[in-house]
């Protein structure tokens, strides 16, 4: 029971991270292409300025929760994905610094450099996160002791000894890139007005078409790479509601964006991410990290779960703390709701 609870609590934090930091990553990618003037760039960055840091906290809080609830998984996955995680850290560093320091720099060349770094690091992060999830879904070459080490790439084929990048995980990366860029475009549609807002609304259409294709491709590829992903669905057919939810949410994005209801369209995009991620988690459950080297080496829920005292202590403060945290999030977003507009003024 504790295992079930903690599995889904960690999943909730991952979903929270992707839904929230997802839109500011997407805005990071988009601002390279959508923005025409310095004023528009300030509006674009201003739409995420007060919230991006809080959004990133979900990653840290989720990582910490994973750490104490499933220490073996944390230890194995973090050391096994050593190289890509370090690259992710470097990208997070570059991204945070380039976004935040832009306000403190007023030389055009340096601003352009920081903008470029911000956009590029945002895009690469979405690809890495998508590829990371795909790596977990595909499985890794676990040794008997539960550890592994993956090179960045081998022969680009998923198999017993794959690399971080193969054709399957690249698809995962692309899905994340397109999905989060669209997520960011919907956010910009809500937060900005005039021409910028219109361009953001228009760019949703091509991104949506691309995403629809990629979603189907990734679904088929996942079933091909790890057929066992379907077991839970066939054992509990009612859970086919999840893929139906994916389709419905995608359709919602299309129609609501067309009908100029950006807030609802954005929420549908949140739902899309929620259904995609929880669908993936359900495809894994109760495995946490599948082994390509034989199912007996899978890191499963029962194998990785912390002791009962740890989990009981953890649950008490976790619930209390997350209620507080959600309170702050709601508070901040309500203080900064409405469009970000341009007006003369001082810092």
């Amino acid at each position: 029971m504790m295992g079930f609870i903690w599995f889904w609590l960690v999943a909730v934090m991952i979903v929270g991270y992707v839904v929230l930091d997802g839109f500011d990553l997407g805005v990071g990618v988009l601002h390279l292409f959508l923005v025409r003037t310095e004023a528009e760039r300030k509006a674009t960055l201003g739409s995420i300025g007060p919230v991006w840091d809080g959004n990133e906290v979900w990653l840290l809080a989720g990582g910490g929760t994973l750490y104490f609830a499933f220490p073996l998984l944390y230890a194995s996955a973090f050391s096994g994905f050593y190289l890509p995680l370090m690259i992710v850290l470097w990208l997070l560093i570059l991204r945070g610094v380039s976004l935040e320091l832009r306000n403190h720099v007023d030389v055009g060349v340096w601003r352009s450099l920081l903008d470029g770094v911000f956009g590029l690091s945002s895009g690469l992060l979405t690809i890495f996160f998508g590829a990371a999830l795909a790596n977990v879904l595909r499985g890794v070459p676990l040794q008997a002791d539960g550890y592994f080490f993956l090179p960045l790439w081998t022969n680009w084929q998923p198999g017993v000894h794959p690399g971080i990048l193969d054709w399957y995980t690249v698809i995962g990366g692309l899905v994340a890139l397109v999905a989060l860029t669209m997520h960011g475009a919907l956010w910009l549609t809500i937060k900005t007005s005039s021409q910028l807002g219109r361009r953001a609304k228009d760019v949703v259409t091509p991104l949506w078409l691309l995403l629809a294709v990629l979603t189907v491709v990734s679904l088929i590829a996942t079933i091909a790479v790890r057929p066992a992903s379907l077991n839970n669905y066939f054992n509990y057919p009612v859970t086919f509601v999840v893929p139906v939810g994916v389709v419905a949410a995608l359709a919602g994005v299309w129609f609501l964006n067309r009908n100029a209801q950006p807030v609802k369209a954005f929420l549908c995009s949140c739902l899309y991410l929620f259904f995609m991620l929880s669908g993936a988690c359900w495809g894994l459950y109760p495995t946490l990290l599948p082994a390509t080297t034989g199912a007996d080496r899978d890191i499963t829920l029962s194998r990785a779960l912390s002791g009962p005292h740890t989990l009981a202590v953890g649950l008490a403060w976790w619930i209390f703390g997350m209620v507080l945290a959600v309170g702050y999030v709601v508070f901040v977003y309500s203080k900064f709701q409405g469009k970000v507009d341009l007006a003369p003024g001082r810092h």
């Binding site: 910490g64 750490y67 104490f68 609830a69 220490p71 002791g307 740890t310 953890g314 976790w318 945290a325």
Partner: peptide, 16 residues
Amino acid sequence: QQSGGVIGQPLAMEGV
């Protein structure tokens, strides 16, 4: 792996 059940807690609490 050995100590995560203990020290993972304050680290997660820091975030939360």
